[in-house]
Amino acid sequence: MTNIQLKPLTKQVKTNLEYYNLWSDLKVYNFDNDSIQLLNGKPLEKLQPSESISNDKTRSEQEQQGNDREWIFPIGMDEKLTMSQTDFVFDCIRLVENERPKRIIAGMVNNDGTIVYYFIHDGIVRPRKS
């Protein structure tokens, strides 16, 4: 895993997460003949969970197990993102985790260096209580 060639976009997001948001243990994964590059890491503080409308139980169990790692999908603001691509990213992660993750985080990179992060949940979730 150490000799994976980082794409510029991935590198930018990784740097931002590591040094600005203070994430730890960031790993890079390549999928689909290196066309998709994803990051997996641990945030400084556990990110707020949203409840899934269907399997509430499995979700809370998963959180108790301390699975607080997040998947990051770096993407440039000038890129196109379709439903099927998003769906495909979820399926790629399944190859590693044996199941589709409950959510991924899209790390959107602007050409001025701004990076914004948005959760993309799989399916319909309930909004946070707070």
């Binding site: 998003t86 948005y118 959760f119 993309i120 799989d122 319909i124 979730v125």
Partner: peptide
Amino acid sequence: FSIEWSGF
């Protein structure tokens, strides 16, 4: 897919 601000 449900989209939400990540908070950071």
